[in-house]
Amino acid sequence: MKVQFWGVRGSIPAPGPETNRYGGNTSCVSVRSASGELIIIDMGTGLMHLGNALLGTEFGKGGGKATILLSHAHWDHIQGLGFFAPVFIPGNHFVLRGHGKSSSMLEGILEGQMNPNFSPLYTLKNLGASFDVRAVVPGEPFDAGALRVTARPNPHGSTTALAFRIEEQGRAFVYASDAGYPDAGPTAEVLGLYRGAHVMVHDSTYTPAHQATRRNRGFSSYEQAADAAIAAGVGRLVTFHYDQDYSDEDVDALRDACRAYLDAHGGAKIELVAAAEGMELEI
């Protein structure tokens, strides 16, 4: 499968020359299976640019189908939906899977985003594409074409955010953004979800010093990302969801410090990549 990054920033888009290299768009990652199925993870502002790129494919003609995995409904993970060009083209179909006590509650959350006070779209029903919104059951695998997906929640401040494992022909990709672990780290179930992933994209919002003063926000430092990667024996760790105030140089430093931390804590064999907008990874 092929993974591509469309938005790697946390909390709020961060435009400006100081974020040109890593990018300032909020969370959005696409996963394309060998047989061509598309999974989109999170709908931050990066989704607009994925959508524009998709207009040259079957999505431009109303024949597109994709699964959207939503980790949680904080603004930086949903604010791209109204700007995702394929949703305005009748015939396109999206299966949206996310967190929620029920499917109707999840749909209600997405409807709330389109409320006319906030959006000229008024309601999801005004979008041309069709949506099948379903709440996922943690730990229960489901198929998106040839891709098998499993989701489990992590604590995220006062709420929870889903981490996803996507498997294809024995290869595993994990997406774990907005993870605010307790001191004990991830649960055994979540570590099981991460176990042996060939590539794991992990929340690395902060340096440890910043994380220590902002613990209640429910984000990881690069050290917690590295600890999770080491504990789960992943092949490659990808730092992700950078704080909106971090410049490209700050992210460079975060990556280098993460490398040093991995090397000093038994993770020398783990490859490390800092996610950047436009980056592609073949798994």
Partner: peptide, 18 residues
């Protein structure tokens, strides 16, 4: 100075993407 949605990136460095 931007409408609709923030647009980070090189193509908006001068006018700004906020």
């Amino acid at each position: 100075v931007r409408g609709s949605i923030p647009v980070p990136g090189k193509s908006t460095n001068r006018y700004g993407g906020n």
